[in-house]
Amino acid sequence: MGSPAPRARQTLTHLREESIRAIVASERAVERRFNEARLVASLAVAMLLVGFLLVAQWRGNASFSATLDNQSDQNLAILIEDLTTQNSALRNDVMRLEVRILDAERAGKDRGEVLNDAAKELAGIRAIAGLDPVSGPGVAVALSDPERVLLPQDFVALINELRAGGAEAIGINGVRVVASSGISGTDGVMRVGDTSLSANYELLAIGDAANLEQSLALPGGLKATLSTFPGVTVVIDQREAIALPAAGTS
């Protein structure tokens, strides 16, 4: 009973040490695995981010170089050339199609309508030429110049501005102004054709009243310019009905 006891103890100690070693080894293995997993996971997350940013960057760069700002001069010239060619081709198309529309309209209309159109056109031309007295809505521009500082070119500018604003007929102090009217002035006395004008001018223009007023009264426009001359006042008002005589009668 005395001798087997220490041997058994020895075996037990040995077993215990062995199992401890096994536990430590397995713990290490687990730790290594764990560390490896963390390693791969963090690297993978970083890779994911890199991939994502790469694509976003790629796309951002693609759209960046697509903007005109970043094209070389040569590229821009080519682009412009292309667009010009395309534009002229399209313009040709438009012309061709317009001609076809006109043809179709002409074919589709009966005589009465054609005559009607012609009459309308004729009326418009007569209004522009000042052959007939006309009336309609428009603006009245009251221009007083007690010191006689206005020059003929100021009136020409006014008339041009009104025409550009869509005036169909224009008169100064009851004298119809047409394409052939001349405005002259000596010593501050204005003449339209052969008619001398008094110093209180009244320009009448028939057309879209709002547009006409705007064309004169816009900031930096003629009204502002003329008002800076000494003594000159400009008053614009829109009227429902304005009547102008035919040219050559006053």
Partner: peptide, 16 residues
């Protein structure tokens, strides 16, 4: 992971 990131970028349609 890189491929996944690229795919994610392509899918979300984000441009810098």
């Amino acid at each position: 992971a890189l491929a996944l990131g690229v795919a994610l970028g392509l899918l979300t349609d984000i441009a810098i």
